[in-house]
Nucleic acid binder design. Structure first.
Lengths: 345, 345
DNA sequence: TTGAAAGCGCTAACAG
DNA sequence: CTGTTAGCGCTTTCAA
């Protein structure tokens, strides 16, 4: 039995078939030089006859670029990152880039693999949406001169462009809104503060509670230790909260997923939202309007943030080494009012 | 001001620095030949001194592979695809592949771009989780001899491996369960049947309703025309449904997102779930357990399906042209009972 | 165990 | 407008 292993057609063969020089084919394909109509037709015929497809790998090799950008996030099934990814993908596409998606699932080893991948020029640059813990890895990226743009990543002390949200301001808006509604007993539920953003939110919450002299209780501040599903965390902490003797009248959460878990806990135990307890999340993921009652949340424009990160990355790739004009934006979040909050009567 | 434009260090330079042949460095790096300890050390020192990173693009070019697989889905922010993607990414990683994520957002033009990308060997193979409408594009993939594995894609008449779910069986399980609970008035809400899977679900529903002689009404079958957010569709159809004079006692939906939209519509209008109306979704996405009441659903093992697709794809890439032993699996879905259904009293 | 050498398929000067 | 030519950085025989 003879295997018909079809050999790959190359540009050289197309050129021969068309009776022109290889470079002419290249020029035609890339539009890098004008090609006479007749020549063009010969080439087109040859391409069709031979069923030719250009080998992009060879082109990339030659051009010293891959037209790929890496996106580094912990988990695509987390809607926050999915929406961010969408922004990155869309903006990348508009700039003729494709996206290599790398998700770590919070595993240390994979972070390292990712850095390996990046420094070996498998991608032209990378959008990092994940707080790499190991300073060492960041150094490696830096030393390898990899173009990097950060998104939703805080507290890295180098000159990479970044786009983040002002967490303190976000928390302020949330509390301020609850104050307007007459709440003075507010609890705070948080996932493990593995990222600086979460630390900031918690710190801000405590600060505003103090500054505005709200009622304060140690056990209204619940912070999960273990890294696990955000909704489970919210459910767990929410359940724990309502076992307390004295209930708060409102609850803020470190993220929407935690809030949705808490919502489930409250509703399951017969509490009504917002009649018995008001609830605010953080991020404003799509889910907020999916649940009932819809969840009031502090909005991070994830999609736009993803787009902006790509814009910045593009500049770095282009080689704007202007240390002066650093691209660092801090976006002010906005409060999206829905049905999970109510004035105290 | 002098720009320190650091030139890229190549293997040749490492070899020179170490005082060995380039091929020796290559052998060392790839383990393709034994290298003496002393030589090894010289190479390692040279690599560190020069801050060398191998250029993967060059390697790919030479090896005629990219170690990349493409994943083609409509939308990552749809949890169904996010979970599928996760399976693909994980399995890919285990097989030393990375994933190029391509999302079309249901735009025709992007489908075409994707095919372009694939046939030009930017990836070694591709997992298609999207019903490409244009037969022409599929032909092109076929002609270009691109390795393809299908997941959640039906009705393509060629020899690609595929993994799909038995929709008819899924719907049967759902209805059967509702029957056990005493329901005989069941509505069906569906997003636009842009994919054959959705057509099958709808057809199966009608079939079982007939076979089991359930109460039937034209206006209990609501199918959206316009392509838009799934939850909005569910909300819209749910709202429409309850305007009917005669309400069904249970509702099946073409997907969980539609069900969640319907749930919102019902709850918003004061109906209680499951006391007043029972609800079943399809897919069993994470959200099912996030909402309140949690949603009973027909489970597709998305993560596993993604993994299986990669397994199949790997075989195709390896070149198992055995037309005989076709990898085509049809998975039986399973009913996941939660709190959105109740027996009729 | 190491080295020399031949390309992989394409792009990009440059010359004509 | 078209052709010649010289590599890109690496892998991979083959010989030493």
């Amino acid at each position: 039995m003879v295997e018909e292993k079809m050999k790959n057609v190359t540009m050289r063969e197309v050129a021969r078939e068309a009776g022109v020089a290889q470079s002419t084919v290249s020029h035609f394909l890339n539009g890098t030089a004008p090609v006479a109509l007749e020549t063009r037709n010969k080439i087109i015929r040859a391409i069709q006859k031979l069923n030719y497809y250009p080998n992009v790998t060879a082109r990339n090799f030659k051009r010293r670029k891959t037209s790929l950008i890496g996106l580094f996030v912990p988990d695509v099934t987390n809607p926050f990152y999915a929406e961010l990814a969408k922004g990155v993908i869309d903006a990348a596409k508009e700039n003729s880039y494709n996206v290599l998606l790398y998700a770590t699932d919070y595993q240390r080893k994979l972070e390292k693999d990712f850095v390996e991948l990046v420094v070996s020029k498998q991608v032209d640059g990378v959008v990092v949406g994940y707080n790499l813990i190991e300073e060492r890895l960041l150094d490696k990226l830096d030393k390898a001169q990899v173009p990097v743009a950060l998104v939703d990543v805080y507290g890295v002390n180098n000159s990479w462009p970044s786009v983040v949200v002002n967490n303190e301001e976000g928390i302020r808006q949330g509390i301020s809104y609850l104050l307007e509604l007459g709440h003075r007993k507010i609890a705070y539920l948080s996932e493990p503060p593995y990222a600086l953003a979460l630390v900031e939110r918690q710190r801000s919450f405590l600060r505003w509670v103090r500054d505005w002299k709200l009622d304060f209780r140690e056990n209204w501040i619940l912070v999960e230790k273990k890294q696990r599903n955000r909704v489970e965390i919210g459910f767990f902490l929410g359940t724990k909260l309502i076992k307390e003797h004295s209930l708060p009248t409102a609850v803020m959460c470190s993220s929407d997923l935690v809030a949705i878990g808490a919502m489930k806990a409250f509703l399951s135990s017969g509490l009504r939202i917002p009649e018995d307890i008001s609830l605010i999340g953080f991020d404003d993921i799509l889910l907020c309007s999916y649940v009932h009652p819809s969840l009031t949340s502090i909005k991070q424009p994830k999609y736009e943030m993803g787009r902006t990160a790509v814009k910045f990355l593009k500049k770095v790739i282009a080689g704007n080494n202007s240390e002066e004009n650093e691209d660092k934006v801090v976006i002010n979040p906005s409060l999206v009012k829905r049905l999970s909050c109510q004035a105290i009567n």
